[in-house]
């Protein structure tokens, strides 16, 4: 019996997603999310959406994982237990109902690659036929993104730059921030390293400057 590759990939996708939610170690969850993105990229490549697969593999499996790891290094590695752990099960019927609704709705979707699908009957035929004559670009995805629908791309680029600037404004630490030096101005830059240096002379007993254990 030959199992379609798509089914296997979907199964692995769901398993990695559930594991990433269930695992307590956030570093492991990050690795699972990267694996999820990798399998999603394989799925995209399987339906010949190579451009999307490339972005998903580079962003989802690569850079997002790095950002998460940096955030974990800056905060904590273990997820804290939620106080409302029992109440969470109350939403389970809602999720099941929504899943059923989505599955029911998906029966009305056209098949993959159906030439009579609504997406195939509009302007897309014109784009596919005229792209090379209009723009000398063999890759229709590129000519669509950067020429026919470049207004969308402009909006996306604006969103990306604005989001990065907003993240920077939220996370940036100002030099003259008064909340930074509430305790001791010497402590602000380095945390533990400075503390150890301050306790340096007490290290003569060989217990690492923290007193006897």
């Amino acid at each position: 019996m030959i199992v379609p590759l798509d089914l296997v990939l979907f199964l692995v996708l769901i398993v990695t997603a559930v594991l990433a939610l269930a695992v307590k170690d956030l570093l492991a969850a990050t690795a699972l999310l990267a694996a999820y993105s990798l399998f999603a990229a394989l799925l995209f490549a399987g339906v010949l959406a190579v451009d999307v697969a490339l972005v998903e593999a580079a962003l989802g499996a690569g850079l997002t994982g790095v950002l998460f790891v940096i955030a974990i290094l800056a905060t904590t590695r273990h997820s804290s237990p939620r106080p409302d752990a029992r109440r969470r099960w109350a939403v389970l019927p809602l999720i099941v109902a929504f899943l059923g609704l989505m599955l029911f709705a998906s029966t009305g979707l056209p098949d993959r690659g159906d030439p009579d699908a609504p997406a195939q009957r509009g302007v897309s035929q014109t784009y596919l036929a005229d792209s090379y004559a209009d723009t000398e670009t063999p890759n229709v995805v590129t000519s669509l993104l950067a020429d026919y629908r470049s207004m969308d791309t402009l909006g996306e680029t604006m969103v990306i730059v604005t989001a990065a600037l907003a993240a920077a404004l939220v996370l940036i630490r100002r030099v003259d921030d008064p909340s930074d030096r509430t305790d001791d101005p010497r402590d602000t830059p380095g945390g533990d390293a400075d503390l150890d240096r301050d306790l340096g002379p007490a290290d003569e007993d060989g217990y690492g400057g923290r007193g006897p254990r």
């Binding site: 190579v50 451009d51 697969a53 490339l54 972005v55 580079a58 962003l59 690569g62 850079l63 790095v66 000398e136 670009t137 063999p138 890759n139 995805v141 590129t142 993104l145 950067a146 791309t153 996306e156 680029t157």
Partner: peptide
């Protein structure tokens, strides 16, 4: 190479950033 194959600004920018 976005004209001739998969890629373009978004994926390429991410690779350069990496």
């Amino acid at each position: 190479h976005g004209h001739y194959g998969p890629g373009g600004g978004f994926a390429g920018g991410v690779f350069i950033a990496v």
